[in-house]
Design a protein around this nucleic acid. Sequence first.
DNA 1: GATACGGATGTTAACGTTAACAGCCACCCA
DNA 2: TGGGTGGCTGTTAACGTTAACATCCGTATC
Lengths: 340, 340
Amino acid sequence: MPRKPKERASRAATLHDVAAQVGVSAITVSRALNTPERVSEAVRERILAAVDALGYVPNRSARTLVSSRSQTVVVLIPSLSNTVFIDTLAGINDVLDPHHYQILIGNTGYDDAREERLLRTYLSHAPDGILLTGLRQSDGMRTWLDKLHIPVVHMMGLDPQAQRYCVGFSQQAAGAALTQHLLQRGYRNVAFFGARLDERVMQRAAGYRQALQEAGIYREDLEWLTPEHSGIGLGASMIAKALQQRPEIDAVFCCNDDLALGVLTYCQRNGIAVPQRLAVAGFNDLDGAAWATPTLTTIRTPRYDIGHAAASMLLDLMSGNTPAEPMQDLSFTLQAREST
Amino acid sequence: MPRKPKERASRAATLHDVAAQVGVSAITVSRALNTPERVSEAVRERILAAVDALGYVPNRSARTLVSSRSQTVVVLIPSLSNTVFIDTLAGINDVLDPHHYQILIGNTGYDDAREERLLRTYLSHAPDGILLTGLRQSDGMRTWLDKLHIPVVHMMGLDPQAQRYCVGFSQQAAGAALTQHLLQRGYRNVAFFGARLDERVMQRAAGYRQALQEAGIYREDLEWLTPEHSGIGLGASMIAKALQQRPEIDAVFCCNDDLALGVLTYCQRNGIAVPQRLAVAGFNDLDGAAWATPTLTTIRTPRYDIGHAAASMLLDLMSGNTPAEPMQDLSFTLQAREST
DNA sequence: GATACGGATGTTAACGTTAACAGCCACCCA
DNA sequence: TGGGTGGCTGTTAACGTTAACATCCGTATC
């Protein structure tokens, strides 16, 4: 014998409840809500009234199950406390919300293993599409995703082999451009401060090295890299240590604005003249950069646009189209300010 | 005649696929994954191998549908770009993740109508519990939620009538405490800068008024309130305007740290001595407050703990318990620093 | 050696919705 | 007046999973 009917004190109203109240069949209620033009106006109005009265909310699980379309997109980002990714999310949301896609945000914490675990969990929602940050995902994950035939677009970076859909800009080119700017300004002992050391930071570092090597003045001992989480305090302590170990440095390229603001704070408190004694540059152009004293030279990154374009591309893929351009380079802008 | 079987080129593996490969029934596979101790070791191992080989991912919709438990919690917050709520989310996540609850984040954008719309959408996921920011939700929404019997916990504020589950602190008491601090320091013409004007900002303003009225020196014309979005730039422009209109002000209570940092920046650039000519105080104690020049006096808010405690309370409610204390006041701390 | 017990596995139905097709009926046109 | 047309509504089954029993079989018990 099958299980007993539930004896819940109360349960959420279903299509059948609404249908019973109005005196029609469930499918008619479904149509009244999803394809109103296929239901006569009189019936539709009575249905909508009943829906309101009963507080009916459609059950997404049932719909997903039967229609095999979840209207859901999974977005994995490394951090929620980094404005960069929040801005990206805003771009994504602005594209997907009008199309009634639900966004499931996964926070990987810059941890590859956790990213894989998260993705696996989120796949159980049967998403219609996936947005990933970076291109570092393991081969295992790749073949696994391929098996499921769910469209995937990568954000922030570019695929050197152009084999995956991606929207971003060359972190390395940006790193090189900022370094060249410092060289043009006459600085010769340019340090690099890197924290967290994720994919993007290492690419910026590569750009820094490339620029200095081309100028023939690259020195390995002017790089300070730490896996610690970035922050203003960390920037301050890094510059303190760096100036002690290598007093000859006359410029610092910080892998992000937080570190750079910490460096500026330290300089201000210790009477180090910026940009005369020390030039300081950051990366991302966060809100604080233009308001620091002195104002901070940095790279403006098109993060909102990346989210927007990536979501648009995903939308395209989800409707079965093949985007004309599988790789979109949205570039970056050098914001030269007082600190250099 | 019913619909034709689908002719998908490929589909995600199901329990039946795994079962067929191993030569057992679907329910055994289900048990091997959910209650492994109820399946013999030999069979379990073969099942896990097949799961791996086929890349099987359980279908959450089907599970939710049949078990009427979605293992999902909806969290509505006003903004993703405000560190306060991100910290709260971290606390929530740290509690719910170990219990394998999925978190659905909804961003209301400080908009009550949007909040109601979002909630309705998210209810279609049949969440097991809901976390809301603030207590401002409309009566309509309340009765509606009551009807569904889904546990709800409110965060950040306290319910004066103690009729709802909530975890937070008294924004008004915090506002009063900070204002009293300024009075103790000898300031007499204390201005209030408010932006965005959400529930919490208005409560802080109420605390500010209360403290000044008690001291008998409240002046309505020292309040600058704007619905604009908060930010460093806004703080700078507000202080410029305020000093022009009411040069006698000798202290500013900013409704959040962003505005206060803007005020500090303006003072620094215009040679206004802080705290001699003008005292500046913020609210929240964000990362930047301790690194500003001068360091910023502010209220440290227990936002991580609020998320943590609210999620714990919700967990309790979701397992059918009644929390001993339906209202948790986590209080706040005054961080007196150089700027006052 | 019959009986009870319990661990392992299976069978059936149900969750709430929508796809696919099947009526039904009013209306129009020849 | 008969046949076709089109708008509206209904019937049935299916999506993938789990709850609730049912069954089987080996082992312990007296």
